[in-house]
Design a binder for these strands. Structure first.
Length: 668
DNA sequence: TCCTCCCTCA
């Protein structure tokens, strides 16, 4: 977009040709409605009296409003070069543009100029400055200005309160709001407005205090602000921040008027809370039942819902829409597209989308690295990472999570170690739980259990269930009872409702021939009333997502699917498949055995996919848990028997099954 | 004509 812009109107060719006598504002607004900034600037250059401060104000304001902050600042600079004296309306827009660009330097310069022209106590100017300093993370400067302004209006208060919220200091924001109320009280005024209330509610969403949002909601109703659009929008978000997604939906449904923010908020709430199907449903509602047009924010949220669901077809449609709307140069949208293709199993499409991006930020690079990593393509992931560094983009915490995860998925211990050390030595980043988790995983799988354990003991942060979980899993592979016990008992404390650890430890005992201990774990697990979370798998067919549960009897085609699986299993035995039920057969009681033997969702989903697609088509399945080892073996055989590529995304990574083998190399 | 809020990506 930048190269499309006209140069600022301070060049020789842009000298005024015509001095308008009529009100520039009136002409101006009729033109802006249908013109781009490019036309707008040339129009301005040709027809507006450039010695008129009011005209300049209009131009700066309009550019700032349309989001073209850079151009607004250029216009401001041009105006200053003409030695025109800015008035009190000039500064707020200029400052707002600095704040939108997070350009602290220009912000400070503009601040100085405002002082120079004597606007130090102007509320409009001060509010804009407080906002600018807060957005640029200079909260103390913002607060200083706030404190130095004796006559405060609601906008000034709101700017400061919002400043705290934006800097993640919800508590301070709440306290300041309280002060605001006290001031109102003292002056016998009611100046609190709906915008102030919106800031208050967004502060609530950042304070982990139970019942706070409800209480403030009550206050909002009492004050009569509950019908306000912005208030409703914020409530949708605030309730969801505490997991009360149902309440969010209720607020949303109860809103008489809904704008783009309302729809976007509701879609985002569902998408961010793992309810991707619901998110897509709301998006459908937005298109079909409202007159509200979606924008880039909507589409990036929808893309992330598609990524979660693995809904490739829907994702592709959204991608098409992005292209149609000319939003492909938007970094956030572009990054969402990369992530969507990666998580829908199409890394090569992700790479294509990545290559075509004009502007890439650290998240775009990280998305692609993570994408290659989850497909087991560690070499490619590292290659992208090196390119990123060469390009001069600074990797962050998450980038290193992606790099190390890529190494971990491919078993690249040496590279993993190197980058784990480099992150603190060269990049000044402290390793967090995720990074330790990857290294523990790498060491553990390589059989270097005592090193892994030493690392865990030396960690500066308290190891969590993921860390001990990797260690426990490694103990199972390498048959280490002692360390397995230590890890498992940590896990019983850290993640008490997860029964997987009991099963793992029980299996470790069983494999060591310690049947009594194995039995003891089973009993303990039972006495604590723990059950496995139900596994389910998703398959997208003709744009619809089908869900399968373990031992599913609900799906309309379930009978046919079971018949087909019967057919397949006969063929499987012919080609040499031996059912792997080692862990099932050991020492479970009958009832449990039956449960375990219920057909896993991934098998159902794969069968369904094959039955309903043309020969040769790739089957793609998404599972909420990790693929079990028996299913993994079976699917390998199936890929050979039916001569299909089968892609399974489980909770940890992708498996590409082809010709009887899997891309993970049985290492996952 | 000017200021403050709510929704997006790894």
């Amino acid at each position: 977009m930048n190269e499309m812009r006209t140069p600022p109107p301070n060049t020789a060719s842009l000298l005024p040709r015509y001095h308008s006598k009529s009100s520039p504002r009136r002409c101006y607004s009729t033109i802006t409605a249908s013109t781009t900034n490019r036309n707008l600037n040339s129009w301005f250059t040709n027809y507006v009296d450039k010695t008129n401060v009011f005209s300049w104000n209009s131009v700066i304001a309009d550019l700032a409003r349309s989001g073209d902050s850079l151009e607004a600042l250029r216009a401001f600079a041009s105006m200053r070069k003409l030695a025109l004296k800015p008035n009190r309306s000039t500064f707020p827009c200029a400052i707002k543009s600095c704040s939108a660009l997070l350009d602290l330097l220009s912000g400070k310069q503009t601040h100085l100029q405002a002082l120079l022209f004597g606007f130090h106590s102007d509320l409009f100017v001060s509010s804009a400055l407080i906002d600018m300093y807060a957005k640029c993370r200079h909260l103390t400067d913002a607060r200083k200005l706030f404190d130095e302004t004796p006559q405060r209006n609601v906008v000034l208060w709101t700017s400061m309160i919002t400043g705290y919220v934006q800097n993640n200091n919800g508590l301070e924001a709440l306290l300041l709001f309280k002060e605001f109320l006290i001031q109102d009280d003292r002056l016998g005024e009611v100046s609190v407005d709906s915008v102030a209330v919106v800031s208050l509610l967004s502060a609530c969403a950042r304070v982990p205090q139970k019942g706070l949002t409800e209480a403030v909601h009550g206050f909002v109703i009492k004050k009569g602000f509950d019908g306000e659009l912005g208030v409703g929008n914020t409530l949708v978000d605030a309730y969801a921040k505490f997991g009360a997604v149902g309440v969010s939906k209720k607020v949303f449904d109860g809103m008489v008027e809904k704008d783009r923010v309302s729809w976007n908020s509701m879609i985002a709430v569902f998408a961010q809370n793992g309810l991707a199907a619901e998110a897509l449903e709301v998006f459908r509602g937005m298109i079909e039942e409202s007159d509200v047009k979606y924008n880039s924010m909507t589409l990036s949220t929808v893309l992330s819902a598609c990524a979660h669901l693995g809904a490739l077809r829907v994702g592709k449609c959204v991608h098409d829409q992005v292209l149609k709307m000319g939003l492909e140069d938007n970094v956030i949208v572009g990054t969402s597209i990369i992530d969507m293709y990666c998580k829908c199993g199409r890394v090569e499409m992700a790479k294509k989308a990545f290559d075509s991006m004009k502007e890439k930020n650290v998240r775009s690079w990280t998305a692609l690295i993570a994408g290659y990593g989850m497909h087991g393509l560690a070499k490619e992931a590292l290659e992208v990472f090196y390119n990123m560094i060469r390009t001069g983009v600074k990797p962050n915490y998450i980038t290193f999570v992606s790099v190390l995860a890529a190494c971990s998925h491919a078993g690249l211990l040496e590279e993993g170690w190197h980058w784990f050390n480099a992150m603190s030595n060269q990049f000044n980043l402290d390793p967090g739980l995720e990074h330790y988790g990857c290294i523990v995983d790498l060491l553990g799988r390589a059989g270097r259990l005592s090193e892994a354990y030493d690392l865990v003991m030396k960690m500066k942060i308290r190891p969590d269930f993921v860390i001990w979980g990797s260690l426990l899993a490694a103990c199972r592979i390498h048959k280490n009872v002692e360390l397995g016990e230590i890890s498992a008992w940590k896990l019983f404390d850290l993640d008490p409702t997860n029964c997987g650890y009991y099963v793992l430890l029980s299996n470790i005992y069983a494999e060591a021939g310690r049947w009594k201990d194995a039995e003891r774990m089973r009993i303990l697990m039972k006495s604590r009333g723990l059950v496995k979370p139900p596994g389910f798998s998703l398959v997208e067919l003709k744009g619809r997502v089908h869900t399968f549960l373990v031992g599913d009897q609900e799906h309309p085609q379930h009978q046919k699917i079971y018949e087909y699986l019967e057919e397949l299993s006969a063929k499987l035995l012919e080609v040499g498949y031996v059912p792997n039920m080692a862990s099932v057969l050991h020492d479970v009681d009958e009832e449990e055995k039956e449960i375990t033997l219920r057909v896993h969702s991934e098998k159902l989903a794969v069968a369904f996919g094959i039955m309903n697609s043309v020969p040769g088509a790739t089957i793609q399945v998404i599972k909420n848990l990790r693929v079990c080892s028996d299913c993994h073996t079976v699917i390998k055989f199936i890929s050979r028997i039916v001569n299909r590529e089968i892609v399974v995304r489980d909770s940890k990574r992708f498996h590409h099954f082809k010709d009887g083998s899997c891309s993970c190399g049985d290492y996952w």
